[in-house]
Design a protein around this nucleic acid. Structure first.
Lengths: 271, 271
DNA sequence: CGTAGGCTTGATTCTTGTCAACCGCGGTGG
DNA sequence: CCACCGCGGTTGACAAGAATCAAGCCTACG
């Protein structure tokens, strides 16, 4: 999982920054200059590692930093009083968690590492500094935020209006496209280091039912599973099954108000 | 519904601005100065009216403005290929819809008026200007964004992990607290101008099932319904039934990094 | 006065959950 | 080195919550 092929779409990333997942991701959202890439590269130069199944932020604590996932997978989840849990957001390489740090409130949920992760911590002050002085990066972060919201809405649609087959198919498609965006889609295969229980806690289903649908998908040759690697053999069939379209992921960012304005601002047009 | 009692919590709003729902709402998130209130008041001075059931933004179009709801209720929803629909977000007075305008992308969903609404349109340029030059307002808008995300997550929890009773109870509680935040909670009564079909499309249930649960709630004296007014007779029972806590609504904002930083920035600490 | 949309209710079906058992594997400790 | 243990996956039998189908009612509105 260390090897990343060039990310698909977005503006080209200079060769030297191609192993930086944050840059690969944000390049989808705004045309980053080489200088921008340099800033981002420096931003995530202080690495930390955490083991699988360790909490990065725990419910009730006040997060001190915004974290960027550089490698591995993390998840935002909530434990419920009745013993259940709901997994809400998966963080892949290049994803930011959690802007929540900027408002310095105790969290109402936790974030934990699913696999061993490599992370970079960014102080809120540094983050605000970026917003103030790097217009293209700010624009990209803004798009990133819009993408996060769109993914939450899409999850709501899936949970509210799709049956078990549709939910699972949608989830696999979304993960594939997210991996594709950061250059980690290898032959329609994606790393899904989740147990069936975790999948159930993501999609509002029981592990037993997840198991049955996955079995059906396997028998129908829609997917192939080996170890933690899942291959989507019939992507179009899965997309149709769930009504999935990748539009909401905003992976073809073009010029927009935020970018335009911020760049003009930087050039002194308003100052 | 025009009469608004003083909003509960947040920093006090100067008397003269008390009929401005945006100010009432944002005062929960940052300590607004009188000057800030003036800016916000001017920001929403250009009013528009739209009739019930009219689309404000339609799927596929590129929104030109950010709208603020001043009066009435609107909803963000998506129509599905199979004829179903999912309602995602309800906009009450003081709510902003839709920051999406800032990224100038065709929308993957629609926003429409549920009741007749009074709106104010804000141009993206003006919005960016606010971000650049009004730190406390920016901070409040940031909190506002975090609140929106939190509400989406809470919906996911409800749809993924709660049964019909829990979902409906949670939704009623959330609406009550949101109304409370803008001073429109009158004796635990709230205006819910939704059909049972719309409630179903919100909570992933059929109208028939919504009907049965509401009947049960009525028989158990948990709620009282008259016309479009719903009274939560046993709020604590409803909160318990759904595991609801209002924490995620962030209605007790305190000093935080965004505010601090933006204010220092404005004072020239970093320039 | 007629009609359509929304509400209400009953009968029935079906998707998903629950309970229970078994298998296989990897890790651990004797 | 091997026995044991626990977790995750798999499967079957059964139960339950919600959907579906269908019909009647009320009321706002043209």
């Amino acid at each position: 999982m260390e090897q990343a092929s060039a990310a698909v779409g977005g503006t080209p990333v200079p060769e030297e920054f191609n192993d930086n997942a944050l840059i690969r991701k944000l390049s989808h959202f705004a045309p980053l200059s080489v200088a921008d890439c340099g800033v981002l590269d420096e931003l995530v130069s202080q690495e930390e590692r955490m083991s699988a199944r360790v909490d990065i932020f725990s419910e009730g604590t006040v997060p001190q930093y915004v974290f960027v996932v550089l490698e591995g997978m993390a998840v935002r989840y909530r434990d419920l009083p009745d013993g259940g849990r709901q997994l809400m957001t998966f963080f892949l390489p290049g994803d930011l968690c959690d802007m929540h740090a900027l408002i310095a409130k105790p969290m109402d949920h936790s974030i934990s590492a699913i696999t061993p992760v490599r992370l970079a911590a960014i102080s809120p002050a540094r983050m605000m500094d970026i917003f103030a002085h790097h217009p293209r990066i700010s624009a990209a972060l803004w798009w990133n935020l819009m993408q996060e919201e769109a993914m939450l809405r899409e999850r709501i649609v899936a949970l509210g209006r799709r049956d078990a087959r549709g939910r699972i198919a949608y989830f696999l498609c979304e993960m594939l496209w997210r991996y594709t965006a950061i250059g980690m889609n290898n032959q329609q295969s994606l790393l899904l280091p989740l147990t069936q229980t975790e999948l159930g806690d993501t999609l509002g289903l029981t592990p037993v039912h997840i198991n049955r649908i996955l079995k059906e998908f396997r028998e129908n040759k829609l997917i192939k599973v080996q170890n933690k690697m899942m291959t989507l053999l019939k992507l179009s069939a899965l997309q149709q099954l769930s009504g999935f379209t990748k539009d909401y992921l905003l992976l073809d960012g073009t010029t927009n108000y935020v970018t335009k304005y911020l760049i003009e601002e930087a050039n002194g047009a308003y100052h």
